[in-house]
Design a protein around this nucleic acid. Structure first.
Lengths: 226, 226
DNA sequence: CTTCCACAATCAGAACGTGCATAGGGCAAT
DNA sequence: ATTGCCCTATGCACGTTCTGATTGTGGAAG
């Protein structure tokens, strides 16, 4: 799931960002109207969290713009201090998916996002399958092989999940470290804890089926294929 | 992709450098104003990561200088202590491509660079094709011939990738050495490790199709054609 | 056309680096 | 106090990269 946060107030922005990163979203940031406009145009997001009081333009215009582009499938959630019913109505008219008045709790944000996802994808959960018979349920945090449960620890699950979200891309140890451990500015390249977790994951999965889908890319990192 | 890091604070510099190297960028370094100015003038970069608080001069002057040189195509990303809004505005006015407040996450840096690249080249995924049926995916670090995987080692992949990025241009051993090994100006012409790698690449590719697209240019270096 | 030389290609093996396996200690949750 | 998870440390094995010697080749000069 790819999310764009459009919010100029730095501390709030950072807070939301951090939270979403921890929830396994891929997060992108925009602080101004221009930045947001460009990113929405260039990338494709699943969600756009949109603050209305932006420097450089009215957030609602962004929404309008985006809705005119039919290729755009992002769900917009409007964040604003203005409790103004007016904005709310306009926003929803223009096709916003939900509306969240500031201040809001991160948990509320999360539950609204999940609600939208349910709406969007039916009642279907976020399920990722791989390697003939494995099925990872991100919301229930379970992994199944055919009909048997596979128990993973938290870190193992997160690591596998993250790799799975980026199927067919090589992820470096640094990238993994940053996402899963938040090592923002640390260089523990001398540590091998990621390797150890990978090894443990492989060991657990190998009880059920060969694990060639979880590849080592020598000198770079790891990759899930298929 | 060739990046110049301009940052006097050593540990941060090193960190970013390490990360970018691992992300397959070609990295060059400058610690002072003078050093940076010279390197920007002499070389051509795709990105310049520019710290503003430099010994020997104001970083913004560097940006201004560079922008006056129309042959200069580098994208500038400004790195500076959080909250200096003034600098930010000035930087963007002068034509910086993006702005990153310290401290920043390496992933954020990467995603911004990718965003800029998308803007610049309109690329989504870096896929390069060559020689009737070969397809190289830079993000997944895979090479395919029709539907079969071709496995290359790290150096082989990087070398091929680099040649491919400069299709139809002859690359000298010095250029290749400089970019792939960071041998800035060394006359180790007595070593033939590049030839060896070329040979190994040819050997692997030849299993699938003739390799006339990878040419030797006698006395100069190598070239990918088509 | 032949000779000759500089440069490229090839090859084997040495040196190096990286990932894997394993074990154990610290720490948090219970 | 006990359990289980996460991280660290270490040695090993293997794949990768580089070296140096040798063979092969294109092209300029005679």
């Amino acid at each position: 799931m790819h999310v764009l946060i459009v919010e100029d107030e730095k501390s709030l922005h950072q807070e939301v960002r951090q939270f979403l990163l921890q929830s396994q979203y891929l997060v992108d940031s925009a602080f101004t109207y221009a930045e947001a406009s460009e990113k929405i145009f260039v990338n494709s997001y699943d969600f756009v969290l949109l603050d209305l009081g932006l420097p450089g333009g009215d957030g609602l215009d962004l929404l309008r713009e985006a809705r005119q582009n039919e290729r755009q499938e992002a769900s917009f959630i409007i964040l604003t201090a203005r409790g103004a019913i007016d904005d709310r109505v306009k926003g929803l008219d223009l096709g916003a998916d939900d509306y969240l008045p500031k201040p809001f709790s991160l948990l509320e944000l999360q539950s609204r996002m999940q609600a939208i996802m349910r709406r969007k994808f039916g009642l279907k959960r976020q399920e990722l399958t791989f390697g003939q018979g494995f099925q990872l349920d991100a919301t229930g945090r379970t992994l199944r092989y055919q009909d048997q449960d596979v128990t993973l620890t938290k870190k193992e699950f997160d690591l596998l999940h993250y790799l799975l979200l980026h199927k067919n891309r090589v992820l470096t140890r640094l990238q993994l470290g940053e996402h899963l451990w938040g090592n923002v500015l640390e260089d523990d390249s001398d540590s091998n804890y990621i390797d150890v977790h990978i090894k443990n994951i492989r060991k657990k999965l190998a009880q059920f089926a060969p694990t060639h889908f979880l590849e080592t890319v020598r000198g770079i990192g790891y990759r899930m294929t298929e």
